[in-house]
Design a binder for these strands. Structure first.
Lengths: 118, 118
DNA sequence: TCAGTAACTTTAAAAATGAAAGTTTGTTAA
DNA sequence: TTAACAAACTTTCATTTTTAAAGTTACTGA
């Protein structure tokens, strides 16, 4: 029988209690941190994200926004009634992802050629 | 006609020249940084990685090791002739991924419940 | 010679991704 | 008053990736 501490159903983690693994359970894919990057840059609407240089597929974008909202990394708010318009904003939890992105940008600038310097 | 600067074939990047996007092109999935974490912890053999708490599928592990070797994040060396045995080690480029993992661990400890503190 | 181990490779099913078209709600120009 | 346009999605379906499981190769030690 599985102990509670080892059971991902009862806890938050899917693979192991390792903090790296837990972060990757939520953010470990090609698109999620692109959306966070855009939010950190001040972009806030669905079409802002959709029109980014990476051309995120719209169904992926919608799914990621829902996932991040559920994880309380961002909030969705209607800023206009008619026509209905929504904006997305980072929570403190979401803003605190900045050091991860900073470290990635730094590493990329140091080691990957043809990368835009930041 | 596509300009050279915008052509991912000629450059290293697949989606955009953004350093975040470039990093995610290489590392943006659920398993790659788990392998890097293990390497940073001093694990070095295929079975070391395979026996980690996350139970990485063996074909995924083999593919990731090849990809990281190709990207010069790690090296593979035969440390014994017979039976043939191999070990993997981070290059300076690989070791410099540590700040990214540190930032992830920090964020996880700050915001994700049931995570092991580091 | 037989079981066991490291380091993979192969296979087939399941899940995720990606490209494209479609939907809903409203605005604005003709 | 109708047609075109836009934001913010949803749906569909083909392709790609992931996963679990079994298989392979090279060798050791009993």
């Amino acid at each position: 029988m599985k102990s509670t501490a080892d059971n991902p159903e009862k806890n938050q983690w899917k693979r192991s209690p390792c903090p790296i693994a837990c972060t990757l359970d939520l953010l470990g894919d090609k698109w999620t941190l692109i959306v966070v990057r855009d939010l950190l840059m001040g972009r806030s609407t669905y079409s802002d994200f959709q029109n980014g240089p990476e051309n995120i597929p719209t169904n992926i974008l919608a799914e990621r926004l829902k996932r991040l909202e559920h994880a309380e990394v961002l909030t969705r708010e209607q800023y206009q009634q008619r026509p209905p318009r929504y904006s997305y904003h980072l929570t403190p939890k979401g803003k605190d992802l900045a050091p991860i992105l900073k470290a990635m940008a730094r590493w990329s600038n140091d080691y990957l050629p043809y990368t835009v310097k930041v």
